[in-house]
């Protein structure tokens, strides 16, 4: 690791000020899982690491605006052990699949949402888009774990977040804050600019190596995630994990279903690890409305969700995997998933 400054603020204002300095070339440290890996691999070189774990207003789960608000410092274990766990099953499905107490004890939702791609070209120093001499290394290289959707541009990695698919399916919003400066009558004043953004608008597909994978601007961060009231929405996430232990999913799907007498009235399906961003399957979800979820219906929805897949040279298999993930998420949400591994 290269050297950097370190700060451990206790308030939001202080944290934002610390993050805004060095032109925003600062990194947020919470659970630490991915940040340390990026630093050790020299993929990022922040001038300062801001440890936000002591910002107490960013911890905990509270009712908010008809739903719940989860602070960025809330650990996965804390979420899992909270009363809301019963309502938001699709998030708990992911926590359940992490299978490493060290990660669930320290990891956070916000941290997961901000993970950078695990693309092995990126992590081995070839840049986010892995271009060499104007050519994509991924396109003809070893792309077995890469994107099968949304991959027509230069970005061919897959979004790393495991919680984004279920959270987007829940229509979650994130609270983004940044420090703003105003000068009035020669006096400089700092204030906190707060925005609530639907999570589905948070992720971006970069077109150049200098763009990011989220809308976050220098000095900005997620402080909270908001979920609407669960009411009687059914939800589930299905992740395809090669290992029965700590592992990155090869494909995942999350769904939220509003049912009325067994008939789908509302549906949202979001896939993970198949595209540079979480991938919303709008058509498949729309098609489900008015139907009763059966194995066949779920299978068809899976196929629809992947109908426009454009697999690369070595990852055709992921299409089948992702279809299965969609099918099984739907069946799981409706208590019909029985035989799987």
């Amino acid at each position: 690791m290269r050297s950097f400054e370190y700060a451990r603020p206790e308030t939001e204002a202080e944290a934002l000020e610390l993050l805004s300095e060095h032109g925003g070339n600062t990194a947020v440290l919470a659970g630490g899982t991915d940040l340390m890996n990026l630093l050790k691999r020299d993929v990022i070189q922040p001038a300062r690491v801001v440890d936000i774990k002591s910002v107490s207003s960013w911890r905990g789960i509270k009712p908010h605006d008809g739903g719940v608000m989860i602070g960025a410092n809330t650990t996965l274990d804390e979420i899992n052990e909270h009363a809301i766990a019963a309502d938001y099953r699709s998030l708990i499905d992911v926590i359940d699949g992490i299978r490493a107490i060290q990660i669930t004890a320290n990891g956070t939702l916000a941290g997961d949402l901000c993970q950078l791609p695990h693309c092995w070209y990126f992590r081995n120093g070839y840049g986010l888009l892995a271009m060499k001499d104007g050519e994509s290394l991924v396109a003809t290289g070893d792309n077995r774990y890469h994107a099968i959707l949304g991959n027509s541009g230069p970005a061919k990695f897959v979004s790393a977040s495991r919680f984004a698919p279920p959270a987007i399916a829940w229509n979650a919003k994130v609270r983004l804050v940044t420090q703003t400066r105003s000068v009035s009558e020669g006096v400089e004043a700092m204030s906190v600019k707060e925005e609530w953004l639907p999570l589905e608008y948070f992720f971006l597909t970069p077109k150049t190596n200098s763009q990011g994978v989220t809308v976050l601007k220098p000095g900005q961060l997620i402080t909270h995630l908001w979920l609407p009231a669960a009411s009687d929405t059914r939800s589930a996430t299905y992740e395809v994990l090669e290992l029965n232990g700590l592992d990155q999913p090869q494909a995942s799907a999350a769904c939220c279903l509003g049912l009325d007498g067994g008939i789908v009235r509302q549906a949202k399906i979001v896939l993970g690890h198949v595209a540079p961003t979480p991938w919303i399957a709008h058509e498949a979800a729309k098609w489900l409305v008015g139907q009763q979820i059966t194995s066949d219906i779920a299978e068809t929805a899976g196929r629809m969700a992947l109908a426009k897949a454009t697999p690369l040279s070595h990852n055709d298999y992921k299409v089948q995997m992702a279809q299965t993930a969609v099918k099984r998420a739907l069946l799981k949400a409706t208590n019909q998933l029985h035989e799987t591994l």
Partner: peptide, 29 residues
Amino acid sequence: LTEEQILDNKTGRYINADLENYKLPRIGD
């Protein structure tokens, strides 16, 4: 089931030379 050296023909690199992508079974496997 899971472990193998993956050499990338584009870069010639041992592209999975870490324990995330060089997959070893866990206690559940």
